[in-house]
Simulated scan of single mutants.
Amino acid sequence: MTDTAAGTPDSTASMQHGTVRVERFGAIAHVVLDRPDSLNSITPDMFYDLLEAGQQLSADTSVNAVVMRGEGRAFCAGLDMGEFKRIVEGTMAGSPLDIPGDAEALAQQAVEIWSQVAVPVIAAIHGPALGGGFQFALGADIRISTADAKLSAMELAWGIIPDMMGTQLLPRLIGPSKAKRLIFTADTISGEQGLAWGLVDELAEDPVATAHALAEQIADKSRSALVWAKKLVDMADSATMREGLVAEQQALRELRGTEEQKLAVQKRMEQLAARKAAKGQS
């Protein structure tokens, strides 16, 4: 696997999904794009594999946080060049990427699934995150990047548009004018510029180690509270204020007084007592 601070994954809980690997570290899962020889470029199989991995994690109540990363020298360099060659040759005509019976495109579902995973998802970005790979990162809740990462919604350079939720997620993150500039120009920006624009939440020399450390901090919290917190914040994009406030009260009714909340309170009080004792000794 990886030489990061995450250590060695639990082999009994880890799983390979073709081009995607899921590694488990206790309550933390790593979703690893695993085509390092091609900079984790996207094939149709990767869409299926990501969706399958996301569905697996959605159903796993032992997972409290997820880190998405790329194996090797890149997060994801976008659509495999072989797929573009097929477009030029006309061999992709009549080959839709839709799942039979579903209205939404498979590529969109491979991004949307990370909002449906109930717990926080952190993207650890290094090297190229281009086109579809850039949009994979947009599907995460939090993005941590190297300063020199290459970020681009580059689809217009290939005569298409960011069709993996990019036209909807990007404006929500950085506002419509900056989103239009990135999409219209197909420019590539650095992780450092991404931080300045609000596209990236944090810079790190080792984004995987930093993302894993953040996942550890998150995973230590009550899972039920994490699930509600993610759901409520996501509602803010589309719900009215009244709907959001009603949902907050529903969350409190469901969380307050449960055994899980009692354990969280006990843990927090023990932590505060330990800090007070340590401060008294200093």
Rank of each mutant, 00 (worst) to 15 (best):
F75D: 03
D206R: 02
L79E: 08
L50P: 13
G131T: 09
H30P: 02
P96R: 02
E83M: 00
A186E: 05
W114S: 03
T2S: 15
I28E: 13
G194C: 06
E254K: 11
R256L: 14
Q16I: 10
V227D: 01
G175Y: 02
C76R: 01
M269W: 10
A13D: 10
D206S: 02
I113P: 04
A27Y: 05
A209L: 02
V208E: 07
P171N: 09
L226A: 08
L156V: 15
D148Y: 06
P100G: 00
L57K: 09
R172C: 13
E83I: 03
S224L: 08
Q168M: 08
G244F: 10
A93V: 10
R223V: 05
V31Y: 05
A74H: 01
A229F: 03
K262Q: 13
H17G: 06
A204I: 00
E248A: 15
T12P: 08
V227K: 00
F75I: 04
M68I: 13
A211Q: 08
R253P: 06
T240Y: 00
L57M: 05
L51C: 03
M46I: 05
A110W: 02
I183R: 10
G131N: 15
F84Q: 04
T43E: 07
Q261E: 15
E23W: 00
Q266D: 15
A77I: 11
E243A: 15
A219H: 01
L173T: 05
F25G: 01
R275S: 12
I183K: 10
G72V: 08
G78V: 08
E248D: 08
L272V: 09
E260H: 06
V67I: 06
A5Y: 09
I42N: 05
R86I: 04
V22N: 14
G159V: 14
G82K: 01
N40A: 00
I42M: 07
L33D: 10
Q108K: 03
G127T: 04
K262R: 07
G82S: 04
E243R: 12
H212N: 03
L232I: 11
R69I: 14
D148E: 14
R268Q: 06
A29V: 13
P100R: 00
Q250G: 07
S115A: 12
E270D: 14
M154D: 15
V20R: 01
A278Q: 02
L245I: 12
F184Q: 14
D102N: 10
T12Y: 09
G94Y: 04
I174Y: 05
D45L: 08
L195A: 12
N64A: 14
Q193K: 11
E216F: 05
S115L: 07
V121W: 03
L151Q: 03
G280S: 10
G78H: 07
D45H: 13
E23D: 00
M81Q: 15
E259C: 06
V20F: 01
T61P: 09
E155C: 14
A13I: 09
T91Q: 01
P162E: 09
T258F: 01
T240L: 00
I125E: 11
A274L: 03
A196I: 12
G131C: 15
M235A: 12
N40C: 01
G198R: 08
F75M: 02
G78D: 05
M1R: 11
V121N: 04
G166Q: 09
E71S: 07
